[in-house]
């Protein structure tokens, strides 16, 4: 299983705006970055040079992991996608 091919396996209806927004100042001061390794869909990445964490919402499974593992409440927004958007499981 290659997580980078998630769009081949799982369906998404992508909204125009993200449902999760990070506060870059809080993330810049975080040494732990549990979101980066714990996210099952690899939506979070860390840029060593810029000392910044990026969240890409397109392939978010809406599982809740980042909401739990972030100790700093670095979210200026954390909600589920608007009705009708986001991940759409067919079977699972």
């Amino acid at each position: 299983m290659n997580i980078d091919e998630i769009f081949d396996y799982t369906s998404f209806t992508i909204d125009r705006e993200p449902h999760i927004i990070l506060d870059p100042l809080i993330c810049a001061g975080c040494e732990q970055r549990g979101c980066v390794n714990s996210c099952p869909a690899r939506c979070y990445s860390y840029n060593e040079a810029e000392k910044s964490v990026t969240f890409v919402y397109d392939g978010c499974l809406e599982c809740g992991t980042c909401y739990i593992v972030c100790d700093r409440n670095a979210f200026t927004r954390w909600r589920y996608p608007r009705g009708g958007f986001g991940v759409a499981f067919r079977m699972t």
Partner: peptide, 27 residues
């Protein structure tokens, strides 16, 4: 972790020939 699990030889035999249809996760 999932890939190591799926590649464990005794489990891999049980799943041989199977194709991944969907991947999901939840807390």
């Amino acid at each position: 972790l999932m890939n190591s699990f799926l590649e464990q030889p005794q489990l891999a035999k049980l799943l041989k020939g199977g194709r991944l249809l969907e991947y999901s996760a939840h807390v």
